[in-house]
Deep mutational scan, measured.
Amino acid sequence: MDETGKELVLALYDYQEKSPREVTMKKGDILTLLNSTNKDWWKVEVKITVNGKTYERQGFVPAAYVKKL
């Protein structure tokens, strides 16, 4: 869990989004888990830094590609 009590997951593999509802992740990324009720796709939040500014983006990743921490 992070400092706000949200559950975290670890990306076990790289994943490139294939639709606007998904998010890209790299092996080793730590993501915030938002919803894991679907056994195949989990909703996560990723933080992306571009030119020194951090953005948060929500989307789905394959559940088999992440592990709860």
Rank of each mutant, 00 (worst) to 15 (best):
M1L: 13
M1P: 14
M1W: 09
M1F: 13
D2E: 14
D2K: 06
D2F: 04
D2I: 09
E3F: 05
T4L: 13
T4A: 14
T4H: 14
T4K: 13
G5V: 14
G5D: 12
G5L: 12
G5W: 11
K6D: 09
K6I: 12
K6F: 13
E7Y: 10
E7N: 11
E7D: 10
L8D: 04
L8S: 06
L8K: 13
L8I: 08
V9P: 00
V9R: 01
V9Y: 05
V9W: 04
V9N: 00
V9M: 03
V9I: 07
L10P: 00
L10Y: 09
L10V: 15
A11K: 01
A11G: 03
A11I: 02
A11M: 02
A11F: 02
A11V: 09
L12Q: 03
L12Y: 03
L12W: 03
Y13W: 11
Y13P: 00
Y13S: 08
Y13N: 09
D14Q: 03
D14T: 04
D14G: 05
D14N: 07
D14I: 02
D14M: 02
Y15I: 01
Y15E: 01
Y15M: 01
Y15P: 01
Y15Q: 00
Y15N: 01
Q16C: 10
Q16A: 12
Q16V: 15
Q16D: 14
Q16E: 13
Q16P: 06
Q16G: 05
E17N: 06
E17H: 07
E17W: 05
E17D: 04
E17F: 06
E17L: 06
K18N: 10
K18S: 10
K18Q: 15
K18D: 05
S19G: 11
S19A: 07
S19K: 07
P20W: 08
P20G: 09
P20D: 13
P20R: 09
P20T: 10
P20M: 10
R21A: 12
R21F: 13
E22H: 05
E22D: 05
E22A: 04
E22M: 05
E22S: 05
V23F: 06
V23Q: 02
V23D: 00
V23L: 11
V23C: 07
V23G: 02
T24D: 03
T24M: 04
T24G: 08
T24Y: 03
M25D: 00
M25A: 02
M25P: 00
M25H: 00
M25I: 15
K26T: 08
K26I: 08
K27A: 13
K27I: 05
K27M: 07
K27F: 05
K27E: 06
K27S: 06
K27T: 06
K27C: 07
G28A: 02
G28I: 00
G28S: 03
G28Q: 02
G28V: 02
G28E: 02
D29M: 09
D29R: 02
D29F: 03
D29Q: 12
I30T: 05
I30R: 05
I30D: 00
L31N: 02
L31Q: 01
L31W: 02
L31D: 00
L31K: 00
L31R: 00
L31S: 02
L31V: 06
L31I: 06
T32A: 12
T32H: 09
T32I: 14
T32W: 11
T32L: 15
L33T: 01
L33S: 01
L33E: 01
L34Y: 03
L34F: 04
L34A: 03
L34I: 15
L34V: 13
N35I: 06
N35R: 06
S36G: 11
S36V: 07
S36N: 08
T37F: 09
T37H: 11
T37C: 11
N38R: 08
N38I: 05
N38E: 11
N38P: 04
N38L: 09
N38S: 12
N38D: 15
K39C: 09
K39D: 13
K39P: 14
K39T: 11
K39L: 09
K39Q: 12
D40S: 10
D40E: 12
D40M: 13
D40Q: 13
W41T: 02
W41I: 03
W41D: 00
W41G: 00
W41H: 03
W42A: 04
W42D: 00
W42P: 01
W42Y: 07
K43M: 15
K43T: 07
K43S: 07
K43H: 09
K43D: 04
K43W: 14
K43F: 15
V44C: 04
V44G: 00
V44D: 00
V44K: 00
E45R: 09
E45N: 06
E45Y: 06
E45A: 14
E45C: 10
V46M: 10
V46R: 14
V46C: 09
V46D: 03
V46F: 06
K47C: 10
K47S: 13
K47L: 13
K47R: 14
K47D: 08
K47M: 12
K47Q: 12
K47G: 08
I48F: 10
I48M: 10
I48E: 08
I48Q: 08
I48C: 10
I48L: 12
I48D: 07
I48G: 06
I48K: 08
I48N: 07
T49F: 11
T49I: 14
T49G: 06
T49K: 11
T49N: 11
T49R: 11
T49M: 13
V50T: 10
V50D: 09
V50H: 09
V50G: 07
V50N: 10
N51L: 11
N51S: 09
N51W: 07
N51Q: 11
N51C: 12
N51K: 09
N51E: 12
G52F: 07
G52Y: 06
G52M: 09
G52S: 07
K53D: 13
K53N: 14
K53L: 14
K53I: 15
K53T: 12
T54Y: 10
T54L: 14
T54D: 12
T54G: 08
T54V: 14
T54H: 12
Y55N: 08
Y55W: 12
Y55H: 09
Y55E: 12
Y55S: 10
Y55R: 09
E56S: 15
E56C: 13
E56G: 13
E56D: 13
R57C: 06
R57D: 04
R57N: 05
R57H: 07
Q58P: 05
Q58R: 10
Q58C: 08
G59E: 01
G59F: 05
G59W: 03
G59H: 01
F60I: 06
F60N: 04
F60P: 00
V61R: 01
V61L: 02
P62Q: 02
P62L: 03
A63K: 06
A63T: 05
A63N: 02
A63Q: 06
A63V: 05
A63G: 05
A63M: 04
A63F: 02
A64Y: 08
A64I: 11
A64W: 08
A64Q: 11
A64L: 11
A64C: 13
A64G: 11
Y65P: 00
Y65W: 05
Y65R: 06
Y65S: 09
V66C: 11
V66Y: 01
V66R: 00
V66F: 05
K67D: 07
K67T: 15
K68D: 04
K68H: 07
K68Q: 08
K68N: 06
K68M: 09
L69I: 15
L69D: 03
L69F: 08
L69P: 02
L69E: 03
L69M: 09
